[in-house]
Design a protein around this nucleic acid. Sequence first.
DNA 1: TCCAGCTGTTAATGCGTATTAGTGATGCGC
DNA 2: GCGCATCACTAATACGCATTAACAGCTGGA
Lengths: 373, 373
Amino acid sequence: MVEEPTKRARRGRAPAPAGRTGRPRQAEVARLAGVSQATVSLVLGGKQQGAAISQETRQNVLDAAGRLGYVPDPAARRLAAARNDLLGVFSFTATFPTDVQHSYYPFLVGVEREAAARGYDLVLFTGSSTGGAGAGGPHPLNRARLADGCLLLGRHAPVDELRRLVDDGFPVVHLGRRDEPEGLAWVGADYVSSSREVVERLASLGHRRIVLVREDDEAPASTDREQGFLEGLRVAELPETEAVFRSADPALDLTPERLRQWLAGGVTAFVAEETDSGGAWRALSTAVREAGLKAPRDLSLALLGSPPPDLADAPEPTGFDIPRAQLGAEAVRLLATLVAGEDVPERPVALVACTYRPGATAGPPPGARPAPG
Amino acid sequence: MVEEPTKRARRGRAPAPAGRTGRPRQAEVARLAGVSQATVSLVLGGKQQGAAISQETRQNVLDAAGRLGYVPDPAARRLAAARNDLLGVFSFTATFPTDVQHSYYPFLVGVEREAAARGYDLVLFTGSSTGGAGAGGPHPLNRARLADGCLLLGRHAPVDELRRLVDDGFPVVHLGRRDEPEGLAWVGADYVSSSREVVERLASLGHRRIVLVREDDEAPASTDREQGFLEGLRVAELPETEAVFRSADPALDLTPERLRQWLAGGVTAFVAEETDSGGAWRALSTAVREAGLKAPRDLSLALLGSPPPDLADAPEPTGFDIPRAQLGAEAVRLLATLVAGEDVPERPVALVACTYRPGATAGPPPGARPAPG
DNA sequence: TCCAGCTGTTAATGCGTATTAGTGATGCGC
DNA sequence: GCGCATCACTAATACGCATTAACAGCTGGA
């Protein structure tokens, strides 16, 4: 005679596996250890406070858990209003695009290291754009709530959803400056100071007229660089008029003729911003080459960021490096603070300094005497 | 006088867990729509089957949900569903090492894509080696049980723990051939056929004596290549004696003299295996260069795999490419099958073919007439 | 002897959702 | 007008864990 199947049994059968098969619950551990589920929770919760558990019981429970290979269910943990030691990583493009160049890899290096150091595992929310796990729901970002907190990569997260998370007090940290949803925590590179420093160094080499080449984009990363550039000019008491060359398509607008024109006008150094495409720098380099010029002999060049990888064999540009791994690590650190939720910084924002890269494309302006001293 | 804080209130305050803040639950939606929570669940669950909900009620619920901005709690959803739609990715080295070259990036490309397509998110278990989240427990691999199933990268997973998982019926797929724990599912590249094909092509170019250069390693990837190589010789009816040159340190043992010796003995083609370090291929290339020889003019070279990235500017070696992204995708596919648990393949193993790469380092042997036809 | 005060453990409950057994109400056939 | 389906929905329960009130056993002071 067959027992009427319990709900439990039925569940365990067909859709099966993830559930019952081999995954022990606290209840099983408890049974094996000869205690109650609550005791197991107390022991494994590892709370020092208020934990009045005898050494013996504790050991029994730990042994049992070990033998069964018990691992807490993250969803249950989370639901019970505790933490599950998971940090989410959310990007609205593929985290691992086919082309390594466009990936967040450098950041992830730091993210992984710091997360590991702090005892967190990472959840990669997939296919945020391509219709992955979250494609069903109209609120993909919401999946993030499964984790204790979430890192946001890229600028494409919809503001509304994001605001929602922030307002709900869900810990989120955006990688890269981002002002939009008020109160959003972010970690960014200090483009302003770094750009200023580059300009100051050029000035101290003797350059008196410097031009910034930038693309036509209002991203914070661009405007910050421009601000730093202008500050640098000001500090060095150099003219700011016509110092910024802005073009929607530098490859077209930045001709060798234009370049010679500048040189004739007394410009001796050029600074380009780094963008995803590297368009500004690429255009600048091309124009210089086509004009038959050479840096740093005929003019000085600097890049506010790292060169695109396909130009890796070119001489190393003077400029600065963005410490991406460090940014990633910093973001995790901040996120961990928010998750802990104890002493939330009033302005949950972190700026990381970039490191100056001497490089080989800048020197004294042509015709200048060797640097004094 | 301060009210004694209720549990509820305390929770909502400091750590600000997923909870209370203002986020509506199904219960609230239900109240607003004048129905029961269960009805809300049924409507929003979007199940066609068995859902006997009137059009009117359905609309009411949807309206209410919309007005409140209801969003399901993923933790609760997953708890109730007895699955969490998470696939683990476990490696015993950092998943994102500082050096991109040593990373699993190419695999992850495929893993992410396929996981997204199937609605899974990924859990990256951090610091599996460096003492991350799981360093405490003596059984780091156990953390994998947190997910519905787990992908294993790299060959360093301890057999005992692994066997444990497999025996428990926990879905695991190893990326790369692996026989050790009986019954372990894996996905690997078909090195045997691919290597054989390379040899056959060389033979059909007219080469009669071919030597394989390999490192002193017993990894399946190495032995498979050798097997394929030997099979290739056999098929082409070429001599197998002294055809395999095995060295613990090819950079030392593979001298230009040795090379000339071989050539003098009638060898016209060399095949190197690909390894992490690329040692064999590197040594071979160096020896050829130092001997003042050129491929394919003086001899033919082939590489059983992809060249190390730092040799990217060298002529493209003849050989085959390992479809890493495809391997990753295949692994996820297999893992998903195991997780679903319905029709588990009896032999949960998948071989993926490599694609032949014509390259530019192989041609007819010197002195041979042009290929007939 | 009795009770206050510990200590160590458990029973009970809640988190938000999915699922299923069950309940009225209605319609249908005869 | 009486069963009997069917329909539309609700009540109840489970999911796995954390948390807390409560309880049993014990000690020591009065």
